[in-house]
Every structure is written in structure tokens, then in C-alpha cells.
């Protein structure tokens, strides 16, 4: 395999002082899509937020296309509970750097900007891709993927349904011209009909050769889409499954929780 697109080396992080995940090492190839599956509240979103630059990693490295996105070394431990560390400790990673490198994270259940119209949001979305070609083509793809958004282009985000908001979120991510797109539970809390619609859109994004990292609670959806699946439990990757041997929902449940019920 050539240099991986995204590589995590012994990554650890959390919300100080509570460590949420430890020793995460993985590498994702150039044309590969991977999935994450695991119980809620075990650190998947925290890990992805760290990779996206919203939270500081405690230790380890995040490499994207061969360049390190975070500052070197470990995060200094807090010795005082009241000192304002935000003042003394520089951010170890910045979302801006991550986004400009082309690693785009689409947040879970994102409310976006309630008082802005769809058009306004889509207008500023390509700012992250400044100086790169292809925004116009991507816009065409987005319009094609989500025809609903064209209909609602002048509505405020506040008045959109949950599914439409998720569409805007994904569209915003796409317009930043991702070299890799991270989707955090794209179908969370949606009606079955919208879930199908969004799943199809995600499938088409996958087919247009954008490497995806997807977190979802629907095993069938995940396994049909990704090349590799990581099982995530208690802040670490407990198992890695290749495309050839994708298990069913029940098998995964057994792997993660043992014989139950």
C-alpha cells in the first residue's frame, strides 16, 4: 500500500481530566472507505472531533496525506485546577488546518446556522477550498444529490426538517472539496423514508470516489458501504474486519457484548 491518506498513531484524547480514548492507531488508504461501529457514549464522536481539530489530542499523531496536522509531543498535564490553561497552552491542532488540508468532518446532528438561508450557507462553504479547482463541479453534484435543497434555497436552516439539515451539512462538507469525508451518524434520528434517501446520497458520494469514514448504528448500511469496519468499544478499537468477511448485525453484537439475550 502506498502512503496512507489518514494515519493515526497512538492517538489519545478526551475532555480533561477525563481520558476518553487511548492508543488509537489506524491507517486508511487513498481510495478506501472505512466504518466505525460501537455503542453510544464510548468515544467515537470524541475521537472524530479530535481528528477534525475541534479538540486537542493528548498524545500521538494525526497524519493526513503524509503531513502531521497536530503539534508535536504530548499535551502538558494540568497541575492546577484553576489556572486558565487556554491562555498558556497553545492549541495542539486547529480545525482550520485540518479543513484546509481536505479532511472534512460532518458533525453529528448538526444544527448548523439556524438564521441563515441554505443559499447563504452554501455560498460560504467553499471558503475552506480556497485556491483549489472544482468547486463549480462539486456544486453541480450537490444540486444533483440533493434536489430538495434547490427547492428550499431561500429558507432559513431553522425551518428545515432534520433530514434537510443533514443534507445541508453534507453539502457543506462536499463543497469544501474533501479529500476525505467523515460522516458522523448521517442518518441519526431520521424517518425511515429520509434515512433511505440519505443512504442513497451517501452511496453516490462513495461512488464518486470520495473516501469516506462513516459512523453509524446500522450495521447493514455500514457493511454494504465500507471496505473495512472498526469495532469501537470503551475508547479503543477492539476489532478490525475486512470487506471479505463482513459479519451480520447479530454476529457483531455477539463479538462486542458476548453471548447475550
Amino acid at each position: 500500500m502506498s502512503t496512507p491518506l489518514l494515519e493515526l498513531r497512538n492517538l489519545g484524547g478526551g475532555y480533561p481530566p477525563i481520558s476518553v480514548f487511548r492508543n488509537i492507531s489506524l491507517s486508511i488508504g487513498n481510495r478506501e472507505s472505512v466504518g466505525f461501529f460501537g455503542p453510544n457514549g464510548h468515544g467515537k464522536t470524541t475521537l472524530l472531533k479530535t481528528v477534525a481539530g475541534l479538540l486537542d489530542p493528548w498524545e500521538g499523531d494525526i497524519l493526513f496525506a503524509g503531513t502531521r496536522l497536530n503539534a508535536e509531543g504530548r499535551m502538558r498535564a494540568r497541575t492546577s485546577r484553576n489556572l486558565n490553561y487556554d491562555l498558556f497552552r497553545r492549541r495542539r491542532i486547529r480545525a482550520e488546518t485540518v479543513v484546509r488540508a481536505g479532511l472534512i468532518y460532518v458533525m453529528q446532528g448538526n444544527l448548523l446556522f439556524p438564521e441563515m438561508t441554505v443559499e447563504e450557507v452554501l455560498d460560504i462553504a467553499p471558503r475552506a477550498a480556497e485556491g483549489r479547482q472544482g468547486v463549480a463541479e462539486m456544486r453541480l453534484l450537490v444540486d444533483d444529490l440533493f434536489p430538495r435543497l434547490c427547492e428550499r434555497r431561500d429558507s432559513k436552516i431553522r425551518y428545515l426538517s432534520g433530514g434537510e439539515r443533514q443534507m445541508v451539512s453534507i453539502a457543506v462538507g462536499l463543497l469544501a472539496l474533501p479529500r476525505m469525508l467523515i460522516l458522523d451518524e448521517p442518518t441519526l434520528g431520521l424517518s425511515p423514508k429520509l434515512r433511505i434517501e440519505l443512504s442513497q446520497a451517501v452511496r453516490r458520494i462513495r461512488e464518486s470516489n470520495v473516501p469516506l469514514v462513516i459512523v453509524d448504528q446500522n450495521v447493514e448500511f455500514l457493511t454494504s458501504l465500507v471496505d473495512r469496519l472498526f469495532l469501537f468499544d470503551h475508547g479503543s478499537i477492539t476489532r478490525e474486519i475486512d470487506a471479505g468477511s463482513m459479519p451480520s448485525h447479530d454476529e457483531i453484537m455477539t463479538m462486542m457484548f458476548g453471548e447475550t439475550l
Binding site: A52, G53, L54, A95, E96, V99, R100, I104, Y105, V106, M107, N110, L111, L112, F113, P114, E115, M116, E120, V121, D123, I124, A125, R127, A128, V172, A176
Partner: peptide, 22 residues
């Protein structure tokens, strides 16, 4: 565009950061 970016930052800080805004 700058004004819209300012409004975006005002309405959802995290989402604005994820769009690469300072």
C-alpha cells in the same frame, strides 16, 4: 462573504470552525 462568515461564527461556533473559518 466576510459578513456571512461572521454570522455563521455567531450562530454555531463549532460548525463555523469545521468550515475552516477563523
Amino acid at each position: 462573504s466576510l459578513g456571512r462568515a461572521m454570522r455563521a461564527a455567531a450562530q454555531n461556533r463549532e460548525a463555523a470552525e469545521l468550515m475552516g473559518l477563523n
